[in-house]
């Protein structure tokens, strides 16, 4: 089972990136840093997908004469989708953060929840 773990270092890096992003997402109290953590998670996922699509010795999936082997184009398209969605989600979440900061003058999630409780929502 552990046979290929030493060869799959791209995937291992991707998983560690995901873990780092997740820890920032869960542990940091600053909302903007949480979003940065989310984006690090996304980078890990893109790296994993790109590594899954790679074929050793394969060329870029652009048709050229004399090329026998191309890399897998499907993960490339999936990463494109992922990047677009991540940009949209990040922008939307940052707009929400701006809105919260305007109202409560803080980015700290603990202080925010205290202020919300004080307001009696």
């Amino acid at each position: 089972m552990w046979l290929y773990l030493r060869e799959n270092y791209y995937q291992i890096t991707a998983m560690f990136l995901f873990g780092i992003g997740l820890s920032a997402l869960l542990l940091d109290r600053n909302l903007v840093k949480k979003l940065i953590g989310l984006n690090i998670c996304n980078s890990g996922i893109y790296l994993f997908l790109a590594a899954q699509g790679y074929i050793r010795g394969g060329a870029v999936p652009i048709v050229a004469d004399g090329v026998q082997l191309y890399i897998n184009p499907v993960p490339t398209g999936l990463i494109l989708t992922g990047i677009v969605i991540s940009v949209s989600v990040t922008a939307f979440a940052l707009a929400l953060v701006v809105r919260l900061y305007k109202r409560y003058q803080t980015l700290d999630i603990d202080e925010l929840s205290k202020l919300v409780v004080k307001e009696g929502m």
Partner: peptide, 9 residues
């Protein structure tokens, strides 16, 4: 990951 096939085959 340990169950995945090697990279690039």
């Amino acid at each position: 990951l340990a169950a995945l096939p090697p990279l690039g085959e």
